[in-house]
Nucleic acid binder design. Structure first.
Lengths: 218, 218
DNA sequence: CCAACATTCTAATGATTGTTAGAATAAAAC
DNA sequence: GTTTTATTCTAACAATCATTAGAATGTTGG
């Protein structure tokens, strides 16, 4: 009867791997596209050594793979289903953990002055894109945009937002997106663009969720 | 920037809760229907005190709730999505962890003498039920059957299999199911019934997966 | 081959978790 | 009210995990 226990212990490795905030942040970044240890360490605010250790952990649990490219190791997700898995975790947590709501609103607190929290759902966005009534804005850094983005999205990394305003339409609503539901970039963008008088809302989800849903990407 | 970390740490509580073989076994049992601490402790082969501690852990992570019923506390899942979450974990683990395959086949090794591992998929089962070409056999204990089962299933708990053979048809194929993909009951049943000359296969999944898929239950 | 760089490994530390046995609590039965 | 039964809490210990600093490995570019 111990082989049953072994099986569940091995399955639990996947859970364990998902059981650390630092690793979830690493995964959020990896889901944007392959990245080096240093990139990942800085995204998660970890020392390189520590990030490497967490990445080994994720690797042993079968969640990421690494390939060498020159001097760097590039980590990527083994499986698109992980994005779905993490979305489900998020939904379960938001539904059943009272604390989550508080933390989400705190994270976006200062960015929610004038209703910037109201998000566009996937269906709304799809409808808007079909009729051409919205322009899509990707505010992630350039290299993440290059690794994959929503069709017809314009890339203006958040740092360059004010200097690239001429790329944005005035006559249509703008929908901004970034890495995912817990990424602050699009919130920040919405806040800043609203101050400048743009009609802009953020998209509910990010690039990984869009891709995992089987929707077309570029 | 620490509120972002807090958010992911809280989300990670869900992962942590899923990061223990003992807790996954508890959840497999809870997914069959509400159960007392003692029932759960014996299902997971834990002392009652230890099981209680794990259940508190699951509770804090928002995965289960408890209500008192007389002397007993009854634990149940907070959320049907957890069954989907665990199925996804299983798929990811089976796809990406080589060890899983070995462990699954070891768990069912002795029960796979004559191809008893070949399972019926959900679609096959649905088709067979529609045409009336299969009889459904639920080999879980009586109380789990009573808490919910697939429509038209006959309940013969594994221990009573040989003494209740007259409930089983000889002219149709029998499909046996139990708690889920890693439950040995239906395997054992298939093996024993085949020795007796019955035409019988097992169902891929269990009652919780069927229910979580939104299919009708009784 | 050497120097520079990216990553992983090692060893040591502190923090967290799992487990047990036994005490405390809470409801039910008498 | 006292006893019984089910569960949770407490304290203690062992085991596991996260983190850091620094050494070791492997790759690139001279």
């Amino acid at each position: 009867m111990t082989s049953r226990q072994d099986l569940f212990d091995t399955l639990a490795q996947v859970g364990k791997a998902l059981g650390s905030g630092h690793r979830l942040i690493l995964l959020e970044r990896i889901a944007q596209g392959e990245a080096s240890v240093e990139t990942l360490a800085s995204a998660a605010d970890l020392t390189v050594g520590n990030a490497s250790a967490h990445l080994q952990h994720l690797r042993r649990a079968g969640l990421v793979t690494a390939t060498r490219s020159g001097k760097q190791m590039l980590y990527r997700l083994t499986d698109q289903r992980l994005v779905t898995l993490m979305s489900l975790m998020r939904e379960v947590a938001e539904t059943n953990l009272a604390e989550m709501e508080r933390l989400v609103s705190r994270l976006f607190a200062e960015k929610n002055a004038d209703g910037a929290l109201e998000a566009v759902s996937r269906d709304e966005l799809l409808a808007g894109l079909k009729t051409g009534s919205v322009a899509l804005l990707d505010v992630r850094p350039e290299n993440e945009f290059a690794a994959g983005h929503l069709p017809e999205a314009i890339n203006i990394p958040l740092e360059q937002l004010e200097s690239m305003l001429d790329e944005l339409p005035r006559d249509r609503e703008i929908v901004a997106y970034c890495r995912g539901p817990y990424c602050v970039l699009s919130h920040e963008a919405v806040q800043r663009l609203r101050k400048l008088g743009y009609r802009v809302r953020r998209f509910d989800e990010g690039f990984p969720e869009w891709k995992a849903a089987g929707l077309p990407v570029h």
